[in-house]
Simulated scan of single mutants.
Amino acid sequence: MEKIRLTQFSPGAGCGCKIAPKDLEEILKNSKSQKHFENLLVGNDSKDDAAVFDIGDGKAIISTTDFFTPIVDDAYNFGRIAATNAISDIYAMGGKPIMAIAILGWPLDKLPADVAGEVISGARFVCDNAGIPLAGGHSISSADPIFGLAVTGIIDSAKVKQNNKAKEGDTLFLTKPIGIGLVSTAEKFSVAEESDKKIALELMTSLNFVGEHLSNIEGVNALTDVTGFGLCGHGLEMAEGSGLCAEIVFDKIPKIPGVATYIEKECIPGGTFRNFASYGHKISPLDDYRKAIVCDPQTSGGLLIAVSAEAIDDVRETAKKYGVPLHEIGRMKRRESDYSIEII
């Protein structure tokens, strides 16, 4: 029997199937609640990674959900990636995940039920590694395979890390290389190198657990994870939310080794073009190569961290302690032009 390739049933790869930022703003513009919730510490006004609700006694609950269509062919790995990506939003707020439930949409007329079972098994493996139960979920029949999690976390209310609190002079760090969207698209076209596929899989299934420990460092002023909107999209949320400009040194951005080849072969995700169409006017001018990197949609990407000068040593020591790479890629500065991100 021919091996099932899940990406053949995927209209978009992983977080590359996210609705573009500009379109999402249009969807949400008239949906804001007129009621004030005093205990809601973080809602969707700040475009942050998760919602945070104060439950008293100095504690807060973090709530998030994330799901998408297959980014790899293997069902078990699809489950691992989707679960890692969803849990990352808890870490991106500085929190500790405590429980997850599954979200499954499955075309049973196209794909057997046991393949969906493999997806869930992959997700359960990741949840076990994160020390949380996969405690239930909900499933529907759908035209395309969809999977993800809704995740609950907990944190000290005073330690919540938001994406819009960066300060002028902060140094920007990134924990994972860019290029997952390019490699995933190359895999869909059967031209990805095995070595690059291996790197991408390792990145997408590596939990951003260091975020929980970064919450203990006061000088970590802003924190987010880089996913479907790309490095510049999530960098923009940080810069605009903080009223600053992010200056990013292109040559310092870590990249998966084979990305230049995939750009040359035009294995560029549709999400890259949607991203640039949404926010390209807010970025200093880019050539096509740089655009393909900084707008590349990541799935389960790394943490983007804005750190004050006095906290840099603590952040480096924390990253080293937990075996997490830390790449210095730029700084936050006063905005003095029409651009909220300057690529130099």
Rank of each mutant, 00 (worst) to 15 (best):
T84N: 15
S157P: 08
V72G: 01
S184Q: 13
P297Q: 04
S340F: 14
Q34P: 09
V249N: 10
S215M: 08
N129T: 09
S139M: 14
K96E: 13
T261L: 15
I199R: 02
A158E: 15
A102C: 07
G230V: 00
P70F: 08
P257M: 04
S300G: 03
A82C: 15
E317A: 13
K47Y: 15
R274D: 11
A75L: 06
A60K: 05
V210N: 03
A60M: 07
G58Y: 14
D74S: 12
L41I: 15
I283T: 02
P70D: 05
F78A: 04
D128T: 08
D225L: 09
L149W: 09
R335H: 08
G122N: 07
N44E: 10
K161E: 01
I263F: 04
E237D: 12
D156T: 07
D338S: 14
F173C: 03
E212S: 12
K333M: 11
S157K: 15
I61E: 06
S46W: 13
L172A: 03
N221I: 07
T7M: 15
R80I: 02
S215H: 06
G219W: 11
A60I: 06
E317Y: 13
I341W: 00
G169N: 06
G95A: 06
E336V: 14
I55E: 10
K176H: 14
V294R: 04
V52S: 00
A277Q: 11
S337Q: 08
K321W: 11
S284Y: 01
E342H: 08
G270R: 15
Y91I: 04
G271I: 05
D57E: 14
G14Y: 07
W106K: 10
I217N: 06
G235D: 02
A130C: 06
N85K: 11
V307R: 00
G181T: 05
